[in-house]
């Protein structure tokens, strides 16, 4: 009896220790891994636009001047979700309140592993669940670009999260269960345009973060990839962009590319809501990248729009 109790206690302790270990933030991307990939400013600007960094990190109520200016990246936008409210942080090169002291390897660890320089997990409101498919080269280029942006002093606000989501360590288990840095769609042999589209959509473009449904734990449902879903901010739903007739079935590749450039739909309505900010970014990509995104969106499996209510 005593032995039995000891065994149970041991097993419980073992399981707890296991969970504790699993939930530990993953080791950083080493500086060595980055030594061979010096950042390129021009390419970094492209990564910045496809990554949509400005859309979340610009100040709240920032007015797009419809020019090629980059908004200040001082953060402060609030995102209400079922788990609580997240506040976008300052990612300007300000040393005290931004990310000015970060090394490239710390920056890469944040984007690819979702771990901060202090060794803490980030919440996946920061879409490292997609950014983890980015190449080290793109990450290094992006860092080079962000380094050139003006520093703004603005201390970060704390996220306002409900218990138990306020416990960051628990995110380690979440990552263990749901992190999927592999390609989402297996095309077998695909041409270079399709591969490029796949990389942009599944990786830095992080389209699936909004356009795919999520489970009750807030993890992407990859079986219904890009099939649309509830708006994480609670306002209506996000459209299905798979080639299903409830999605982009009626859109041609040219329709999609035009939408990502001028914002016009095939009916010549115009993009609105949060997507307007996204089109602001995609309009600055190379035309070949918009074409690649369109090719990918027409090549993925058609899934029916998810029921959101």
């Amino acid at each position: 009896m005593k032995l039995c109790f000891k065994l149970v206690a041991l097993a419980t302790a073992g399981a707890a220790a296991g969970l504790w270990m699993i939930s530990a933030p993953q080791p950083a991307i080493s500086a060595d891994a980055l030594a061979s990939v010096p950042g390129d400013l021009q390419r970094g600007a492209e990564v910045f636009h496809i990554g949509g960094c400005a859309s979340c990190h610009m100040p709240p109520d920032y007015e797009e001047p419809n020019t090629d200016t980059i908004p200040p990246l001082s953060g402060g936008k609030r995102f209400r979700t079922p788990f609580g409210t997240f506040v976008a942080p300052n990612i300007t090169p300000d040393k005290a309140t931004g990310i000015g002291t970060w090394s490239t390897s710390e920056f890469a660890t944040a984007l690819l592993k979702g771990v901060s320089p202090r060794g803490e997990h980030y919440y996946p409101a920061f879409p490292y669940t997609s950014y983890n498919r980015m190449t080290l080269q793109d990450v290094a280029d992006l860092k080079a670009f962000i380094d050139t942006q003006p520093a703004v002093s603005r201390p970060n606000d704390r996220h306002e999260l409900d218990f138990p989501f306020s416990l960051r360590r628990g995110l380690g288990l979440w990552k263990y269960l749901y992190s999927q840095p592999e390609r989402v769609i297996d095309f077998g042999d695909a041409d270079s345009e399709l591969r490029r589209g796949q990389y942009l959509v599944e990786g830095p473009g992080h389209c699936g973060e909004c356009h795919s449904p999520r489970n009750v734990f807030g993890a992407t449902d990859y079986s219904r990839w890009l099939g649309g879903g509830a708006n994480p901010q609670g306002d209506g739903s996000i459209p299905n962009i798979s080639p299903h007739r409830s999605g982009l079935g009626d859109w041609s590749e040219a329709d999609i590319a035009e939408y990502l450039s001028s914002g016009f739909t095939p009916d010549y309505d115009v993009v609105g809501s949060e997507m307007a900010d996204v089109v602001e970014n995609t309009a600055r990509l190379a035309a070949s990248d918009r074409k690649a995104i369109a090719a990918y969106l027409k090549a993925i499996p058609a899934v029916e729009a998810s029921k959101t209510d």
Partner: peptide, 9 residues
């Protein structure tokens, strides 16, 4: 086209 789209947007 882009500037027109921006105008509508």
């Amino acid at each position: 086209m882009k500037a027109v789209g921006d105008g509508c947007k």
